[in-house]
Design a protein around this nucleic acid. Structure first.
Length: 955
RNA sequence: GCGGGGGUGCCCGAGCCCGGUCAAAGGGGGCGGGCUUAAGACCCGUUGGCGUAGGCCUGCGCGGGUUCAAAUCCCGCCCCCCGCACCA
C-alpha cells in the first residue's frame, strides 16, 4: 500500500512540475474540451462525485493520447441557499450542523469561522482541489474560479448573460407560488426545513363554494373539482372552531390556515367572528354545480389544519367520504347531539358520476371493501384506496352521460373544463395549497404565497424551444437514448422563476434586490474557463468594473471593435484579442459528463442558454451521463454508515485502486446505478503492484524464434486494441477495462499455456500495449511501468496504441476456439469412459467443408438457416444422403458455421496444440482425417467440430 | 398526475437495439481440491436436472403470438423503481 502511494505522489508531483495538463490554444492540433459540472462547495467530494469526474478524466486522458489538445478545466459553484442556511444554523447553534462539520474533520477551534458563508466556500474549494489532485485528475488548474458576487469577475460575466437574454426578449415578469414562512417572511426551500418536510411543494387546487340559505359560504378545498356533481353532503369537524371572515365581499367559514393562504395569494380577508363546527352540522347548503340542497354533517377524518377545514363529500368516488358516510349510517343517532334529525342520513346515497372499467357504480366502495376498511380512522388504508381510485378515474374514467356538456368526456379533460366553468360562474376559485403541513426551520407553519414581481426565463417560448431541439438533434449523447429524454424535457419546460432572495449569487443587474438562482447562473460558464485564466485574481490587472458588456460581446460573440473597446474600458487590446482567441479555439464544449441528477435540470438549461446566446458553431457537442454510485449494493448514506468521502478512499486504497474500483463499479454511460465494492479496491492494490512487477521483470525477456501461437496472441492483442478504442470512444469505460485488462490478461494466460515461454517481441508489445491501455484508468501506475521498462516520457501522454489490421486473423482465433471445445468435449466424454486409452481427433472429410461453406454463403445472402441448408444440399455434388445427414447435424449445431475455418488450418491448429491437449486429457493424442481414420466415430466429424474417439483400454 | 426505467440462474449483474455461436459473460457466495504448522491471501475445479460418447430435458416476471428457431421480436397482464421547479 505504501509502495503504491509513493508512486502516486511521485507522478502527481512530476505532472504538476511539467505542467502536463495545462492546455493553451495550439492551432496545429485538434482540440477537445471536456467538462464536469462544477460542484456545489458545501462539503468534500464523495465517491459519487468522484465517480463522475473520474469518467471525465478518463476521457480527457484517452483523447490526449489520441492526439488531441485536451482542456479539462474545473470551477466551483457557491450559488444558492444551502451554504447560507448552514452558516445561519451554525450561528443559531444547531447541534446537527456542528456534528456534520465535525464528522468531516473540522476542528473545534475552526468551527466559528463557518458562521460566515465565505468561509465554507474557501474551505471546501481547498478540500476539493486537494482531493481531485490527489485522485489524479488531469485538470488545468489555472482556470479555476467560483461563482456568486463574492467573485465579481464571474458576476460580471453572469450579468452580461442575463442582459443578453433580456435583450432577446427571453425574460419576463410575473407571479409564482412558493412555500412561505410568515414569521421570517421568506421563501422556504428544502434546506430551510427539517428533513421530514423536504420535497413538499405547492399544488394547484380548487375551492368550491357551498352556500347556506342565509348566504354563509362553506368553501371546500378539493383536488378533484369534477366530482362536485357527486357531492351529496359537506363535512365539517364538529369540535373545531372555525373563523368567519369577509372574503371578496362574501362571508366565509374557514380555518386559520386558509386565511393565511388566501392572504398570501392576493385575497382580502377580514375576520369578523367565529363559529363552532357543531353549529354548522344540520344546516343545508346548495351544491353550486347541481343546484341541489345537501346537508352539512360531522366527520372525524376532517383535519382542520389542512385546506379550508371544510370538505365536500363525494362518497361514490372518494373513499374517505364513503367510509365516513357509512360510519354515520351505522350510528345516525350521534346527530341528535347536534340537534339534527338522524333520519336525514338514510336519504344520502353515493351518486356515481364517473364510470371506470372494472369498477361498479361506486368505485370508492370497491376500493374500500377490497381493503376491508372498517372506519374512517384506518388512515393508511384509506390513503392507499384514495390513490387507487384517484388514479384509475383520472386515467381511464369517463364522465357519465346526463352531466350536460361533460357527458362522455374523459376525466382528465373534464377536470380542467369544469374548473374553468365553476370559476367563471363564481362558484369556485383556483388556489395553491400544500398537501400536508410544512414547517420552517424556525418552527413556524408555512403556507403558499404568490410572489409578485418574479422574474422568469421564458422556456415556454416556442422559438427558443425550437432552437434547443435543433441543438439536441445535432449533439451526440452517451447513451444515445438520452436524446429523446432531452427532446421531451425541452417540450415539458414552462417558464422558470430564475431569481431568488436571500441566497448567494449574482445580483440581477436591473433589479438588484433579486439574486440569480443557482441553476440559471451555471448554464454557459464553460465559456468563462477561456477567460478565467486571464481575469481571475486580477492576474492581468483587469478590474471587474472594466468588464462591460461590450467586452464580453467581443470575446464571446466577436462583436465590436477591440480597439475601441480597449480605449473605453482600458483593457489592453492584446489581452482582449488573447481572450477572444482562447474562446474561439476551445469552444464549443466537446463533451460534458454528468451524473443523472443533472439531466432534467442543469443539462437542459445548458442547452437552452447556449442556443439563446451563442452562434450555432458554439453549441454543445455532446453529453454523457452516468448513474449514482452504490456502496456494496446500497445507496450511500450517512445513516447507513456507508458514506465514503473521496479523501477517505484515497487514504485507504490510494488513487489507483480507488480509480480502478470506481471504474469496475460500472463506469459505462447510462442511467443505471454503479456499484462500488470495497473488496474490489482491496484487490486492485495487489493487482496493480503485481502488474508493475511483472512488466519490469519480463520486459525484454523471451525466446527469439517464432511459433504459430505467437501470431494468435498478436491477433488477440490487436483486436483488443481495436475493441478497447471503440469502447473508449463510446465512454464504456468499465467494458473497456474488462476487455482491455481482464480479458487480455486471460488471453495472455492461454498464450503461456500454449507457448510455454513467450516470444520476446510479442511479450514486449504486450507489456507496452497493456500499460498504455491502463494509462487513462490508472495513470500513476502506467507512468511508473513506463519508466521502469526504460521508456522516455510519460505513458500518460504517449500515443494511444494503434491496432495493426494485418495482424488480426479471425482464422487463427477461431481455430484456437476449436481447440478449446475439443478439449472440453473430450473431457466430457472421458467422464463416461472407464479406462481411457488414446484420444483420436478426427478432422472431417473435405466435402463437408465445401458443404458448410455453401451453407454459410447462402446464410450470408440472407437465407434463413433451413433454406440455406436445403439449398446447399441440393446443389452439392455426390452423396445426397450423406449430405442430408450432415446438414441435419448442422441444423442442430449452427455454431459450427461461425467457427468454420479452412480444413488445412484446422488440421494445423490441432497438430500444433497436440501437446497441450495431451496434457489436458492425460492420454496420448492422435490427430487424423476422416479419410484416413478407421474409427467408427469418424463419420460424426463436422468442420470445426472434429469427431473424438476416446479408445478404451481392454481389461 | 406528467415523464422515464426495469423484472435474468443462490445473490449481484451482462445480454437484449442487429432472433440461432445462450444452460446464458463476469463477479460474489457455496462446495471440492491445491498451497500452508494453521488461518488469511492466492491458485485450480465445480455450482439447474438427468445421462456409461460430446447428448437430452427444464429454463431468463405471467399468459398468448410470430418464426425452422425467442431471454432476445409482437400483444395483453402483474409487479417494482426513479425524476418533477427554489434542492444544487
Amino acid at each position: 500500500m505504501e509502495a503504491i502511494k509513493r508512486i502516486e505522489e511521485k507522478w502527481a508531483k512530476k505532472w504538476s512540475q511539467d505542467k502536463l495538463f495545462e492546455a493553451d490554444p495550439d492551432p496545429s492540433r485538434p482540440k477537445y474540451f471536456v467538462t464536469f459540472p462544477y460542484p456545489y462547495v458545501n462539503s468534500y467530494p464523495h465517491l459519487g462525485s468522484a465517480f463522475t469526474i473520474l469518467r471525465v478524466d478518463i476521457l480527457a486522458r484517452f483523447k490526449r493520447m489520441r492526439g488531441f489538445n485536451v482542456l479539462f478545466a474545473q470551477g466551483w459553484h457557491a450559488t444558492g441557499g444551502p451554504i447560507v442556511a448552514s452558516a445561519l444554523r451554525l450561528r443559531e447553534g444547531d447541534p446537527k450542523i456542528v456534528e456534520t462539520l465535525r464528522e468531516i474533520g473540522v476542528r473545534d477551534e475552526e468551527l466559528p469561522k463557518f458562521k460566515e458563508p465565505q468561509y465554507w466556500i474557501r474551505f471546501f474549494i481547498k478540500g476539493w482541489r486537494e482531493d481531485l489532485a490527489r485522485y489524479g485528475m488531469s485538470i488545468d488548474w489555472r482556470r479555476e474560479f467560483h461563482t456568486t458576487s463574492l467573485n465579481p469577475y464571474y458576476s460580471k460575466f453572469i450579468e452580461w448573460q442575463v442582459l443578453k437574454l433580456r435583450e432577446k426578449g427571453l425574460i419576463s415578469k410575473g407571479s409564482h407560488p412558493v412555500v412561505w414562512c410568515p414569521k421570517e417572511s421568506k421563501v422556504v426551500g428544502d434546506h430551510d426545513r427539517p428533513d421530514e418536510y423536504a420535497g413538499i411543494s405547492p399544488q394547484a387546487a380548487v375551492i368550491i363554494k357551498f352556500r347556506t340559505e342565509d348566504g354563509l359560504v362553506l368553501p371546500a378545498l378539493t383536488y378533484r373539482p369534477e366530482t362536485v356533481y357527486g357531492a351529496v353532503n359537506v363535512w365539517v369537524r364538529a369540535s373545531y372552531t372555525y373563523l368567519i371572515a369577509e372574503v371578496d365581499g362574501e362571508t366565509w367559514v374557514i380555518n386559520e390556515y386558509a386565511v393565511k393562504e388566501l392572504e398570501g395569494q392576493g385575497f382580502e380577508v377580514k375576520i369578523t367572528g367565529n363559529i363552532r363546527g357543531s353549529e354548522l352540522v344540520g344546516r343545508w347548503v346548495v351544491n353550486p354545480a347541481t343546484g341541489t340542497k345537501i346537508p352539512v354533517l360531522p366527520a372525524e377524518f376532517v383535519d382542520p389544519d389542512i385546506g379550508t377545514g371544510i370538505v365536500m363529500s363525494v362518497p361514490a368516488h372518494a373513499p374517505y367520504d364513503y367510509v365516513a358516510l357509512m360510519d354515520l349510517k351505522k350510528d345516525p343517532n350521534v346527530l341528535k347531539a347536534f340537534n339534527t334529525d338522524p333520519s336525514i342520513v338514510s336519504g344520502i346515497e353515493p351518486v356515481g358520476i364517473i364510470s371506470v372499467e372494472g369498477y361498479s357504480e361506486v368505485p370508492a366502495r370497491d376500493a374500500v371493501e377490497k381493503r376491508r376498511i372498517k372506519s374512517q380512522h384506518d388512515r393508511s388504508l384509506l390513503e392507499d384506496a384514495t390513490k387507487e381510485v384517484y388514479s384509475k378515474e383520472y386515467h381511464s374514467g369517463v364522465m357519465k352521460e346526463g352531466l350536460g356538456p361533460w357527458g362522455g368526456m374523459p376525466v382528465s379533460k373534464a377536470k380542467e373544463k369544469i374548473t374553468e366553468f365553476l370559476a367563471e360562474k363564481g362558484f369556485a376559485i383556483r388556489i395553491y395549497t400544500l398537501p400536508e403541513p410544512v414547517y420552517c426551520r424556525c418552527g413556524s407553519r408555512t403556507h403558499v404565497k404568490i410572489v409578485k414581481d418574479q422574474w422568469f426565463l421564458k422556456y415556454s417560448d416556442a422559438r427558443w424551444k425550437k432552437l434547443a431541439h435543433k441543438a439536441v438533434d445535432s449533439m451526440s449523447f452517451y447513451p444515445e437514448d438520452l436524446r429523446k429524454h432531452f427532446h421531451s424535457m425541452i417540450d415539458w419546460y414552462d417558464d422558470w422563476a430564475f431569481t431568488h432572495k436571500g441566497e448567494l449569487g449574482t445580483k440581477l443587474p436591473w433589479n438588484p434586490e433579486w439574486v440569480i438562482e443557482s441553476l440559471s447562473d451555471s448554464t454557459i460558464y464553460m465559456a468563462y474557463y477561456a477567460v478565467a485564466k486571464y481575469l481571475e485574481k486580477g492576474r492581468s490587472g483587469v478590474k471587474p468594473e472594466q468588464l462591460s458588456p461590450e467586452v464580453f460581446d467581443y470575446i464571446f460573440l466577436g462583436r465590436g471593435d477591440p480597439g475601441q473597446i480597449s480605449s473605453t474600458t482600458g483593457i489592453p487590446i492584446e489581452l482582449l484579442r488573447a481572450m477572444r482567441e482562447e474562446f474561439e479555439y476551445w469552444y464549443p464544449v466537446d463533451m460534458r459528463i454528468s451524473g443523472k441528477d443533472l439531466l432534467p435540470n442543469h443539462l437542459v438549461f445548458y442547452i437552452f442558454h447556449h442556443v439563446a446566446i451563442f452562434s450555432k458553431d458554439k453549441w454543445p457537442k455532446g453529453i454523457g451521463i452516468n448513474g449514482w454510485v452504490l456502496i456494496g449494493g446500497e445507496k450511500m448514506s450517512k445513516s447507513k454508515g456507508n458514506f465514503i468521502l473521496l479523501r477517505q478512499a484515497l487514504d485507504w486504497w490510494g488513487a489507483s485502486a480507488t480509480r480502478w474500483a470506481e471504474v469496475m463499479a460500472g463506469a459505462d454511460p447510462g442511467l443505471d446505478d454503479a456499484n462500488f465494492e470495497p473488496s474490489v479496491a482491496d484487490k486492485a492494490v495487489e493487482e496493480l503492484l503485481s502488474w508493475i512487477r511483472f512488466a519490469e521483470e519480463n520486459y525484454g525477456k523471451g525466446r527469439t524464434h517464432r511459433k504459430r501461437i505467437d501470431a494468435w496472441f498478436e491477433s488477440v492483442l490487436n483486436k483488443t486494441i481495436r475493441k478497447v478504442t471503440e469502447l473508449m470512444e463510446e465512454q464504456k469505460f468499465k467494458t473497456a477495462l474488462v476487455e482491455g485488462y481482464y480479458n487480455l490478461q486471460s488471453a495472455y494466460k492461454w498464450y503461456i499455456k500454449r507457448a510455454g515461454e513467450p516470444q520476446r517481441d510479442v511479450l514486449a508489445r504486450f507489456i507496452e500495449v497493456q500499460t498504455l491501455i491502463l494509462a487513462p484508468f490508472v495513470p500513476h501506475v502506467a507512468d511508473e511501468v513506463w519508466e521502469r521498462i526504460g521508456k522516455k516520457g510519460y505513458a500518460s501522454t504517449h500515443a494511444w496504441p494503434e491496432s495493426d489490421r494485418a495482424k488480426i486473423s479471425d482464422e487463427l482465433e477461431r481455430s484456437e476456439e476449436i481447440i478449446k471445445t475439443v478439449i472440453q468435449d473430450s473431457l466430457e466424454i472421458m467422464r463416461f469412459v472407464r479406462r481411457p486409452g488414446r484420444a483420436r481427433i478426427i478432422v472431417a472429410a473435405g466435402w463437408k467443408y465445401r458443404l458448410l461453406e455453401d451453407i454459410k454463403k447462402h446464410r450470408e445472402k440472407g437465407l434463413n438457416l433451413r433454406e440455406a441448408i436445403s439449398r446447399a444440399v441440393r446443389e452439392s455434388t455426390g452423396g445426397k444422403k450423406e449430405a442430408g445427414r450432415i446438414a441435419s447435424l448442422v441444423a442442430r449445431k449452427p455454431e459450427v458455421l461461425s467457427l468454420l475455418v479452412p480444413r488445412n488450418v484446422e488440421i494445423e491448429a490441432l497438430n500444433d496444440a497436440r501437446d497441450l491437449i495431451r496434457e489436458e486429457l492425460g492420454v496420448e493424442v492422435i490427430v487424423e482425417t476422416e479419410e484416413q481414420s478407421r474409427s467408427p466415430k469418424r463419420t460424426q466429424a463436422l468442420p470445426a467440430k472434429p469427431a473424438i474417439h476416446i479408445e478404451e483400454i481392454e481389461e
